[in-house]
Amino acid sequence: MVTINVSRVADEGALHLLLKQELGFPDFYGMNWDAFRDAITGLVEVPDRLRFVGWDQLSERVPRGAIMLRQALHDYQAPYRPQLVVEYT
Rank of each mutant, 00 (worst) to 15 (best):
M1G: 15
V2E: 13
V2L: 14
T3P: 03
T3M: 09
I4K: 03
I4P: 03
N5Q: 11
N5H: 12
N5T: 13
V6Y: 04
V6R: 04
V6S: 00
V6Q: 03
S7C: 00
S7A: 15
V9A: 02
V9T: 11
A10L: 11
A10Q: 13
A10V: 11
D11F: 08
E12R: 01
G13Y: 13
L15G: 04
L15H: 02
L15I: 05
H16R: 01
H16I: 06
L18C: 06
Q21R: 08
Q21T: 12
E22A: 15
G24S: 05
G24V: 04
G24E: 02
G24L: 05
F25S: 05
F25K: 00
D27G: 07
F28V: 07
F28D: 15
G30I: 14
G30N: 14
G30Q: 12
N32C: 12
N32I: 09
W33I: 05
D34F: 00
D34E: 13
D34S: 10
A35L: 03
A35M: 06
F36R: 07
R37P: 01
R37S: 12
D38E: 15
A39Y: 02
I40W: 02
T41F: 01
T41N: 10
G42P: 01
L43D: 12
L43T: 08
V44G: 08
V44M: 02
E45S: 15
V46A: 02
P47F: 04
P47E: 08
D48E: 12
L50D: 05
L50E: 10
L50Y: 07
G54W: 12
G54Q: 10
W55T: 09
W55D: 07
W55N: 08
W55Q: 07
D56H: 06
D56I: 01
L58S: 10
S59G: 15
E60H: 04
R61D: 10
R61G: 12
R61V: 02
V62Y: 08
P63M: 08
P63R: 04
R64Q: 13
G65E: 05
G65A: 10
A66S: 13
A66T: 00
I67Y: 12
M68S: 13
M68W: 05
M68H: 09
L69E: 04
L69T: 11
R70T: 02
Q71A: 14
A72P: 10
A72T: 11
L73T: 07
H74D: 09
H74W: 08
D75E: 15
D75L: 11
Y76R: 02
Y76A: 03
Q77C: 06
Q77T: 11
Q77P: 01
A78D: 12
A78T: 14
A78W: 06
A78N: 11
P79K: 09
Y80N: 10
Y80P: 00
Y80W: 11
Y80D: 06
R81Y: 01
R81M: 15
P82I: 04
P82R: 08
P82E: 03
P82N: 01
Q83C: 04
L84N: 05
V86I: 14
V86Y: 01
V86Q: 06
T89Y: 00
